[in-house]
């Protein structure tokens, strides 16, 4: 068993139910995930697509779905031909209430050796998760303006 390549922990002042909705409602994900809509019925085995401006960026398959506690999906970045050929990586969210906060743990693992997806997502995750926290706590996302997103994509690929 390989160790996970990435682990992120963020504390958010919200409830598990609200956080679950933020992770699974496309109108909500658009607000913090660089305009991406995550579309699925969120049942185990179902597909999930991440689209921006109608273009599919990542194709996923739901592997675990236990609202509002645990969500996992396999992830393939299809917006880049090299990344598209890599085997799926696995994203897992764990939501644990702690008083007025929810401790959100995100792991991203099972990358191919020399994966091009890995540096791309490792740059994107902190932005996405910080913006998620900001939306839930203040009602406003971080100012990840289109020029910044374009710059990020040019430098690092995209999460």
């Amino acid at each position: 068993m390989r160790k996970p390549e990435f682990l992120y922990v963020i504390y958010i002042e919200t409830t598990p139910d609200t956080l679950w909705r933020a992770l699974t409602d496309p109108a909500f994900t658009r607000r913090y995930w660089m305009n991406c809509e995550l579309i699925s019925d969120w049942k185990v085995g179902s597909p999930m697509t991440m689209t921006r401006d109608g273009e599919v960026k990542n194709e996923c398959v739901i592997r675990e779905s236990d609202p509002p506690r645990r969500l996992a999906y396999d992830w393939v970045s299809v917006h880049d031909p090299e990344m598209k050929r890599e085997k799926p990586s696995r994203v897992t969210y764990t939501l644990e209430p702690q008083g007025k906060l929810v401790r959100l743990t995100v792991t991203h693992e099972n990358f191919t050796d020399g994966s091009k997806t890995l540096p791309s997502v490792s740059f994107g995750w902190p932005m996405v998760l910080s913006s998620l926290k900001s939306v839930l706590e203040t009602g406003k996302p971080l100012d990840l303006t289109p020029p910044l997103i374009a710059e990020t994509e040019a430098e690092h690929g995209r999460a």
Partner: peptide, 16 residues
């Protein structure tokens, strides 16, 4: 941040 991985405790830089 840490996770249990089998019998080991692994430490990760948490960039958030």
């Amino acid at each position: 941040a840490t996770i249990r991985h089998g019998r080991e405790k692994l430490h990760y830089l948490n960039p958030a």
